[in-house]
Nucleic acid binder design. Structure first.
Lengths: 333, 333
DNA sequence: GTGAAAGCGCTAACAG
DNA sequence: CTGTTAGCGCTTTCAC
């Protein structure tokens, strides 16, 4: 039962108890070649009894490379949750550890960033960063940086995003194909990607000869979508379809619509963006533009690793994919 | 502007450049007494130019205590997000760093736990842990453990939770006061706290002479709430109120109800549980039983710190509070 | 106020 | 196969 609280067990303790050198115990604990099966077994069992746990800090300190990836994310963004989960997986596959650091209203992105940099991560992956290109460039002078779900012109900063312009185009196409003409976009304000989605919406509408393209101010949350929709319903009852900034926002849109007596999709079609996990699992599954979290995370990790090895900053733009589920349908009005 | 990539700048580099000893630079960087203002200023400016960032790992390694708190949480649990945010704040106030480690379907709780233990955290806080009392007890032999939002009989394991039984009682009281008699509880299965909430529901209903207490199988997610509600609506149209396991679940309940043509709260009242941040900000704000995240997190951190100082395991049960918002109303049928 | 030296727990050469 | 010797980057006595 071993492990007395307070006095942590060290490698040296185990070595002493086993009557071998610390180097040997180290070899055994790491599972590398260089110890007899007999010794290995004995050391392992003694270590187990003593409750020995290798000190990760000391270990990383000694090693030339930390094999650590820093990831900052927004605690309140469900899609970031998906990305973090995937990042853990992908990094684990190449034997990297990831240290995550959360951003929240009471915890700034720079605070989150500082903690990972101080941990001596070899690279950082920033999910949906709000940092300026200047700040990003300054950071990139220090270590490899990859931003996800946005882009950046900062020199030396990699990005992995999906083509937001095209994504919104997909949404508009789908809607137009269903006969919709009065389509509105509830935007994401100054969120990463929002500008592209706005531009994509206007362009797609114009391209299809729909001059009635209207964009209203929205945001990233349900409440933003709800607010925008309340205004919209009050101002213009002729709208038949809504392209929301993201899934969360779309949820708010749908909720208000339904309470106002409209049916979705019979009266109004609604499309989200991201395909965050909740979207597919909502009571009525959301039609949405998918940014594949697994793909994005894999690209980001691979890009960061490549940069660590001296490669160029990745500039990856993935094609989003429309996932038609239950919130869109043919126009009936 | 200093920082060449690849070769991190160390304390020694700064000391060398400034023509002083490493000890002095250390003093300056930590901002402790023992250096002249003049030196302080000069060292600081040189360090800044060189882009020096203290190595947190080396620092913690050298220090007797790591002043590190480990927190494991579920990536997909919005309420955990609230808790994590508060934990950062509270721990920061007493100059502790927190290392968070996420649990997700592809990342087990024991994996999450291992990483924080290896980081030599002085204590761990487990949000909504699913670990058995035995596993918890084993962990507690190694370092202080506090579980949040559940309890545990394991010796040496602290917990901070709210009184789930009483919380559900509050919900039932509110509903009964509004004239409801046909109330159903959609439960949380084997989730932490679910058993207490079931028991609390049955007890509260019995206490008020309502024998019709029915509990149906639910879960933690919107989809669980939706599924249960679909079954419910099909089986029994006389229900006038629902007490859901948590806010997410309640959201699914409401959604299905509305789509089935019921109005909330005019036809059916719905109560959630947790008061996770989204609850208050939903398009139609949710009536819910609040577990104050700030309070819980503060108690958990304080409890963990007390245990580090050799104090007893905290056993804190907070009184939940009913937050009446827009999803409950007088019975009309 | 400042510097020299020791060492946190571990791994990486290198001997034997 | 095993042990010895150096440090990783930092903080901490303890002299000066």
């Amino acid at each position: 039962m071993g492990a007395r609280r307070g006095g942590r067990v060290t490698l040296a303790d185990v070595a002493h108890a086993a009557g071998v050198s610390t180097a040997l115990v180290s070899i055994v604990m790491r599972g590398v070649a260089g110890a007899s099966d007999e010794t290995r077994e004995r050391v392992l069992s003694i270590a187990g009894e003593m409750g020995y746990v290798p000190d990760q800090r000391a270990r990383k300190l000694r090693q030339a490379s930390s094999r650590l990836l820093g990831v900052t994310f927004e605690l309140r963004e469900p899609f970031h949750g998906d990305l973090v989960e995937e990042a853990y997986r992908v990094a684990g596959d190449v034997d990297y550890d990831v240290v995550i650091s959360a951003v929240a209203p009471s915890r700034s992105e720079s605070t989150a960033l500082d903690t990972v940099v101080r941990e001596r991560c070899e690279a950082v992956i920033l999910l949906g960063s709000r940092l300026s290109d200047d700040a990003l460039a300054a950071l990139a002078e220090r270590l490899p940086v990859v931003v996800v779900a946005r882009d950046s012109n900062a020199p030396g900063v990699g990005y992995v995003r999906s083509d937001d312009t095209a994504g919104v185009g997909l949404a508009v196409d789908h809607l137009v194909g269903l006969g919709h003409r009065r389509i509105v976009h509830i935007d994401g304000g100054d969120a990463p990607g929002a500008a592209d989605r706005r531009a994509g919406f206007s362009a797609a509408m114009a391209e299809r000869g729909l001059s009635s393209a209207s964009i209203v101010a929205g945001g990233l949350t349900q409440i933003d979508g709800a607010r925008a929709t309340r205004d919209l319903v009050a101002a213009d009852g002729s709208v038949t379809a809504v392209v929301a900034f993201n899934d969360e926002c779309a949820t708010g849109v749908i909720d208000v619509l339904i309470r106002a007596g409209w049916r979705v999709p019979e009266d109004v079609s609604v499309i989200g963006y991201d395909d965050a996990r909740p979207a597919s699992r909502a009571p009525v599954p959301l039609t949405t533009v998918s940014q594949d979290a697994g793909e994005l995370a894999a690209d980001a990790v691979a890009g960061a690793l490549a940069m660590i090895d001296g490669g160029p900053a990745p500039r990856i733009v993935r094609r989003p994919r429309l996932v038609v589920r239950a919130t869109t349908g043919p126009v009936r009005r």
